[in-house]
């Protein structure tokens, strides 16, 4: 069976500096895959390449069997690709409600807007309380929920979450991850990008470890949990970067 998403031999970067070299990953239909790696390993670049915000220099991206390398970012939403980006990137001057409506801007999602809105608000009851509030005035955790909710509004087949736990209190991380697990149960494929190895591996089926722009290791969640590489490459760096 062809995987829902496959990247093969991707090279990408910004200006003259190469970030990803020879990156190949796959996400199957209904799978939860995590992409682990330290700061600067190229995780966010990977999500941007898939979402069409960064154009790869070479390599192949296929989604649902079709090559999408030439499809511009805004059209990939209609194919079923959604990204909750690093740093949340909510529209700060707009209300939560307006942010969510924008999530279903694409025509196929607009038709199903009411149902999607109900689902998202059920998933994140906090957002329902804040519907009329300006997104920029909310806490980091609430903005994270909004960013994920907004991505789900587009009725994706593949949902990418870039560092959903970054900067959040542990209790909020639990809430967010509970919502991720529930979304996965609904059959949406998920590509989870994290530095928070433990949380990510708890929900993921499989995972990749990204180091210096290429895949350093891969395996089932259980394998990676026990892997010395993950520990050394990562926990070490995390300990260093912690204040």
């Amino acid at each position: 069976m062809t995987p829902l998403l496959s990247l093969s031999n991707i090279r990408a970067g910004y200006g003259a500096s190469l970030v990803l070299h020879d990156l190949s990953i796959e996400v199957g239909e209904g799978e939860v895959v995590c992409l682990l790696g330290a700061n600067g390993a190229g995780k966010t670049t990977t999500t941007c390449v898939i979402a069409g915000l960064v154009r790869p220099w070479s390599g192949e991206i296929r989604f649902a069997g079709e090559s999408i390398a030439e499809v511009p970012g805004h059209r990939r939403v209609s194919l079923g690709i959604a990204l909750s980006p690093e740093g949340r990137q909510v529209f700060p001057e707009m209300t939560v409600h307006e942010n969510l409506l924008l999530g279903s801007y694409a025509p196929h999602a607009r038709r199903d807007r009411t149902r999607a809105m109900d689902q998202v608000l059920a998933l994140f009851p906090r957002l329902e309380e804040r519907l009329r509030q300006k997104a920029g005035l909310m806490s980091g955790g609430e903005q994270q929920m909004l960013a994920i909710g907004r991505a789900i509004m587009s009725r994706p087949r593949l949902l990418m979450l870039d560092e959903p736990s970054l900067g959040l209190a542990p209790r909020i991380v639990m809430d967010v991850y509970a919502a991720v697990a529930e979304t996965a149960r609904a059959g949406i494929s998920i590509l989870l990008v994290e530095q928070n190895t433990e949380a990510a591996l708890a929900v993921a089926d499989r995972g990749y470890v990204l180091a210096n722009g290429t895949i350093a290791a891969s395996g089932s969640a259980a394998e990676l949990r026990g892997s010395a590489l993950v520990r050394s490459a990562f926990l070490g760096i995390q300990a260093e970067s912690a204040p």
Binding site: A51, G52, L53, P72, G73, H74, R75, V77, S78, A82, L83, P85, Q89, V90, F91, P92, E93, M94, E98, L101, L102, G103, Y105, A106, A109, R110, R150, A151, S154
Partner: peptide
């Protein structure tokens, strides 16, 4: 719908693309 898209682009260009806005 389009007016909202205009404001989205003004506030965050890249996030607007992620919404499917050209």
């Amino acid at each position: 719908e389009t007016g909202r898209a205009v404001r989205a682009v003004a506030q965050n260009h890249d996030a607007a693309i992620l919404m499917g806005i050209n």
